[in-house]
Design a protein around this nucleic acid. Structure first.
Lengths: 277, 277
DNA sequence: CGATGGTTTGAATGCTGTCAAAATGTGTGG
DNA sequence: CCACACATTTTGACAGCATTCAAACCATCG
């Protein structure tokens, strides 16, 4: 598998993987990484591309290296909803099942680390610690999904829009903070298309538009362009959202959510890909 | 640990546990059961009792033996929602985290198998296969949570009520089927209080009442009493619900959802407790 | 029998989706 | 650089579902 240069506190990197990534990949055991590296490969996907189809074969699993994936499902009558967004470091796919319960698509251009599901499972059998990492990841995803369900049915659409702005700015601030970058004013970037935000928040693009302009009128945010907003009054935004810090924390990058006892900690920032032209 | 009598196809039973239960408990390795039995105990809880408080210590984990638990959370302003219901065989609690992200309460009188979380974690470290079983359980819970989110935001309240009726009858039919009991007509029992159903479906008791009577007017169901309904026309009920069989299957008992590759299969029926008086 | 808790029914309000049109932005080709 | 087509966003008007509040109804129980 070639030499591993540097190492020490870089054991988190898969031998052949340039990007440093969180969660499942940040295990400290080098043997696992050789095993995984042997069967996984990087893959670039364009925005809108389907990675795993709902009801289709659960052929592969992987980790997001850059970009954002959406987990979605369509009802018999065509209504569709995004039930989850996956960010760099997040695990995707379904283990130990033949077919997919949901679809996984690229919400933006993205870079993935993918592996054949069956072969990945055999690595898991050899390395129980890997199953532990995946359990951690899945537990977190479960908490996020339940929190989403809570916000979806308890909050009205204005509160949901405000919450989404808080979450995106929160994620951005945390990433910048890890990179030791100071930022005077916080900017919210939607990250995904307006239509996807609407689907994710369980509302429409018209309603989102109205609420964004309402927030600007109230002096809470400043609309920079159709997908970038400066948060002028974070406290008021949170008051409008009606959620607590605890509610928001669940949506922050993984290593910040576990208050203790996480066996592996690793900080890293993954730069977004530029749009393929 | 005493002798284990009978055994053979009863390896699924914890040595000291009279109830036979699915999922995590139905592993075939006897050594695990000795270990778990040594640190777990049965516990009866009355309806309404809190087992784990939101934000409180994640002191214990366990399995539902009988009854129904609810996983819920309350927003800063007091709005509350049930994000998940747990049935016999389901695992509850949070592993590897110090504090709870949600509350776990008894929706009905219930019987539990509980264990100290930290000690349970040490058993997991000794028996990786147990971690596998928990990962399976958590993955399923994740799929259910996402499916709930989908139904919650795509379906209107009539459709959600219809879906709930389909799920409860479906669960009942499957349990009876496992017990080799034939049933001529299918009956839906809410199982939990009307208020809890409302919270779970993200609506109000008034709306539920209206829809139930609407369904009776249309001849789709027959109201036996305020919490029991006979389904007269299952197909029409499903048409009204607007969901596919696939959507419903996720909510059925565990051993029926995994289409393949599940390492452990066990059928059992757990009788509901009578109300404590 | 009155009291209590849960359920049903009614009327009114309001949020949010829908449809449609205007406005803005983006990219292409002349 | 401009003109045009196309996509996205914004704005407006309207309708409908569902919540809210309130009152009536019904059950069980002391």
């Amino acid at each position: 598998m070639g030499k591993i240069e540097g190492i020490a506190n870089q054991a988190n990197r898969c031998a052949r993987c340039r990007a440093s990534v969180r969660s499942v990949c940040s295990l400290t055991d080098c043997a696992i990484h050789s095993d995984i590296a042997a069967l996984s490969g990087r893959r670039l996907v364009a925005a809108g591309q389907t990675i795993l189809a709902n009801g289709g074969q659960a052929a592969l699993v992987g980790t997001v290296l850059a970009g954002i994936l959406k987990v979605s499902k369509t009802l018999p009558d065509g209504r569709e909803r995004i039930v989850s967004l996956l960010y760099p470091g997040d695990f995707f796919g379904q283990l130990f099942t033949a077919s997919m319960d949901f679809a996984v698509e690229a919400a933006t251009d993205a870079e993935l680390c993918v592996a054949d599901r069956l072969r990945y499972e055999s690595v898991i059998r050899r390395h129980p610690i890997l199953e532990h990492a995946i359990l951690q990841s899945t537990s977190r995803a479960l908490a996020v999904a339940r929190e989403s369900a809570l916000l979806l049915s308890c909050l009205n659409s204005l509160e949901r829009v405000a919450t989404y702005l808080l979450v995106t700015t929160g994620r951005r601030d945390h990433l910048l903070q890890e990179a030791k970058l100071q930022t005077s004013h916080s900017v919210a970037a939607l990250g995904i298309s307006r239509a996807d935000v609407a689907s994710y928040l369980g509302t429409t693009i018209e309603t989102i538009s109205r609420h964004l302009h309402y927030l600007e009128d109230k002096g809470v945010i400043l609309i920079l362009d159709s997908s970038h907003f400066e948060v002028l009054d974070r406290d008021r935004l949170q008051t409008i959202a009606g959620v607590s810090d605890d509610d928001l924390r669940l949506f922050m990058p993984a290593e910040l959510t576990r208050t203790s006892e996480s066996r592996h900690l690793q900080t890293a920032i993954v730069l977004p890909l530029h749009r393929s032209k």
